[in-house]
């Protein structure tokens, strides 16, 4: 089936199997490899993208349901107003091996758009579906909550 939707600042038209994963469409057909596959089962959050502004797991979204939607990936977010947050994210050591980073950036940015000054508690709840096995979340939370270095 043919499906049209917007991705970051452009438009996409994809002809594929209705149940093809948005994750594969982004990475393999549209070359947007910033979105990572972690578990492929919705548990880890690495493949998070925004769909009409809401964070969703691209491994669990079938192409069928993308018609007319607005998709934003980590590439789009990195080009937009997230610059300052991303610099903070690097400075705090929020990035270690990098596997979870794109998903965490997308989820965290969705939170910051709704709530520019989240508490630790709010940040932790927003990130409940994003696993990071390197950082212990400390640098990530400091970057999101814009805490000064201790």
């Amino acid at each position: 089936m043919k499906v049209s939707f917007s991705v970051n600042s452009g438009a996409a038209e994809v002809d594929g199997h209705a149940m093809e994963r948005l994750l594969d469409v982004l990475r393999e057909r549209l070359g947007l490899t910033g979105t990572k596959e972690g578990c492929g089962e919705g548990e880890c959050g690495a493949c998070t993208v925004l769909m009409d502004g809401e964070p969703v797991l691209s491994c669990l979204v079938p192409l069928l349901q993308c018609e007319g939607r607005r998709i934003e990936t980590v590439e789009g977010i990195a080009e937009g107003p997230a610059r300052e947050f991303l610099e903070r994210f690097v400075a705090t050591g929020g990035v270690q091996c990098g596997a979870c980073t794109p998903g965490i950036v997308v989820t965290a940015w969705a939170l910051l758009e709704r709530n520019p000054a989240p508490s630790r508690e709010e940040a932790r709840e927003a990130l409940a579906g994003n696993l990071c096995r390197c950082t212990g979340y400390e640098g990530i939370l400091r970057a999101i909550c814009a805490e000064p270095e201790s």
Partner: peptide
């Protein structure tokens, strides 16, 4: 139910 992303869908 799951986390934020799961609850959105």
């Amino acid at each position: 139910v799951g986390g934020w992303q799961i609850q959105n869908r």
